[in-house]
Design a protein around this nucleic acid. Structure first.
Lengths: 155, 155
DNA sequence: CGTTATCGTCAGGGTGCCTTACTAGAAAGT
DNA sequence: ACTTTCTAGTAAGGCACCCTGACGATAACG
């Protein structure tokens, strides 16, 4: 059973895009597993959201902006996290329209676990490819994202 | 308005996981845009699927295995691509249960465009971070995926 | 033939995002 | 104060991509 080749055209090296996607998926799952092992049952998207909430609170629109999603999507996820006690919504004293999003009791409890899990993922990655490689990748990826997001799509 | 800091805990460097995820999303979109500009209207997942179909045909189960998804998910996507003429299903002469998946007329037409788009993405990435960096990342990511997928989750 | 494993499908569910349309409050012009 | 316009958030519905469970059909093995 032929299992090595990938396609008929250019089978050569694995496309960087596939690797990027797969790596994000695999290590996202590693993060989720780490956190679940410490009693925090968050999806990757939820972890990302929690990691973008500052201690002094944030508005939904700003949070959505940080995450690069619409405020509606963000609002839905915040709803879920509020329902589980990870976040709370309080009216913004400075703006009657706005509500500020803070950590709830569960959020305070889970925060250290989340950061620990994040570090664990980085440590594991560093163990596999080396610390230098990890830091190099960090810089390259940041540059690539900045360039790619600038709209320089087609030639 | 504080806009630079990301969170209350360790704000330090951007987590590699966020960068990985964002890079995959950004350049996945670049690929989709490139292909759309050449008349091929595929999502990233569809492109990945098309890229995993060998010219001599493949069974659904094997295809799902290559993509790392269930045969049900894979079958749904194949259905969509069949409906648009990119793929065709033919009974496997060697196995009455199985059907082999081949490229359809649209698939043959789109294949060169897809490979070109894939190369364009890599070229663009190489232009941003350098060809050496790209090749280094390819190796590291492959190693990271292999290690992470081996189930070495918690410490 | 009967049992078990495999191939593909049907039915249903869930997450993570989206667009469109809307209300409530704020800001600015007159 | 009144109106327009902008902004914060919500409501409702949809789409893509993935999952589990259950099933009929064929194959492989005894």
């Amino acid at each position: 059973m032929p299992r090595a080749r990938k396609s008929d055209g250019p089978p050569g090296p694995p496309p960087i895009l596939s690797l990027l996607t797969e790596a994000a998926r695999v290590y996202g799952q590693v993060l989720v597993d780490h956190m679940a092992a410490n009693g925090v049952d968050h999806s990757f998207a939820q972890s990302r959201l929690m990691g973008s909430v500052p201690g002094e609170g944030i508005r939904l629109t700003d949070l959505a902006d940080r995450l690069g999603v619409t405020k509606q999507s963000c609002g839905q996820m915040v709803d879920d996290l509020v329902a589980d006690g990870y976040l709370v919504r309080r009216p913004d004293p400075a703006d009657g329209r706005a509500k500020l999003i803070f950590f709830g009791p569960e959020g305070d409890r889970s925060l250290p676990q989340a950061w620990a899990a994040l570090h664990a993922v980085e440590d594991e990655l560093a163990r596999v490819i080396g610390r230098d490689a990890l830091e190099a990748m960090r810089g390259w990826l940041a540059a690539a994202i900045a360039a790619g997001a600038s709209g320089d799509g087609a030639g």
